[in-house]
């Protein structure tokens, strides 16, 4: 049984692709056979963040149109054994992703024994984003601690409830998870940002995790190594906790409380 996880947000630039790469890598590191699919046709980024952009030969659209088979297009990840990447096409537009075509690819992945398929959704609420959530079993809604991002997440939750296959067929609804990213406890503490409890209160879906704002994320994506591999950093730990919670484990929230630096730390010039 393959579980299809869609990582979505409505708003752009909140960390969908970073999250897709880290969640998929984390699941694979835990031994699950995982594929991560880039639905952002025309603006492919996932392969860059996964560090496999130079190995792209065939892409998602090629598979849908029958120019290549799935086996040829899936790229094996360098860092995790059970992880495969299906890149998006750079040269087509999102209309190339047909509902039948996507369903066929997902069926084929299930047939090949994948445990998890992570769908990296494009921003917006148009065709590309809708098709990325159509087949979802679970949705991770990535939200930044700012009002416009929360509003867009709310919008995308409404679309999940009305346009996903599960909703249309009247099956058990898509399981929704809230992932707050780019969280700065200091700014939230000082009232410059929404706190994660504010966000959860606004969206009213279960909180999967809070990923702190960190320069590690930018370094990681420039190097093409998903942030979850940056061991010992708060970002990697927070993603690991989120994956644990996704799999039903219990982890207390970390990196969400602001601690005032002590006198000694300030004297020593600590951040």
């Amino acid at each position: 049984m393959t579980t299809i996880i869609t990582v979505t947000s409505g708003k752009g630039g909140v960390g969908k692709t970073t999250t897709s790469a880290s969640i998929a890598s984390g699941l694979a590191l835990r031994g699950f056979k995982t594929a991560v699919l880039d639905f952002d046709v025309g603006l492919r980024n996932l392969d860059l963040i996964m560090g496999c952009e130079r190995r792209v030969v065939y892409d998602f659209v090629n598979v849908i149109q029958g120019d290549a088979n799935l086996h040829q297009a899936l790229i094996k990840d360098k860092h995790a054994d059970n992880l495969f990447v299906l890149p998006a096409s750079q040269t087509r537009d999102k209309d190339a992703l047909t509902s039948e075509g996507v369903e066929k690819v997902l069926k084929e992945l299930e047939h090949q024994g994948f445990d998890y398929v992570v769908c990296d959704s494009p921003a917006g609420i148009e065709h590309g984003a809708v098709i990325a959530l159509t087949f979802a079993d679970e949705a991770i809604v990535v939200t930044n601690p700012e009002v416009s991002s929360v509003r867009d997440s709310d919008r995308i939750l409404g679309i999940i409830q009305s346009k996903s296959r599960r909703a249309i067929e009247g099956r058990e609804p898509v399981k929704e998870h809230l992932l707050v990213t780019r969280y700065d406890p200091k700014r939230a503490h000082e009232g410059e940002m929404l706190t994660y409890t504010d966000i959860q209160e606004l969206l009213r879906i279960p909180l999967l995790g809070v990923i702190p704002e960190s320069e590690v994320v930018l370094q990681a994506s420039n190097q093409g190594i998903p942030a979850i591999h940056q061991k010992g950093t708060p970002v990697a730990d927070a993603y690991q906790d989120a994956i644990g919670r996704f799999l039903g484990e219990e982890h207390p929230l970390r990196f969400v409380e602001y601690e005032k630096p002590g006198l000694l730390k300030r004297l020593l010039g600590g951040k």
Partner: peptide, 27 residues
């Protein structure tokens, strides 16, 4: 019974409506 999210709209023609979940901004 379900929350009304931003961008969603419900219309009760000719009668009343009872909403038992949150109506988000933009709904």
């Amino acid at each position: 019974d379900k929350p009304l999210r931003s961008g969603q709209r419900v219309y009760a023609a000719g009668g009343d409506i009872v909403v038992l979940a949150a109506v988000s901004p933009g709904a």
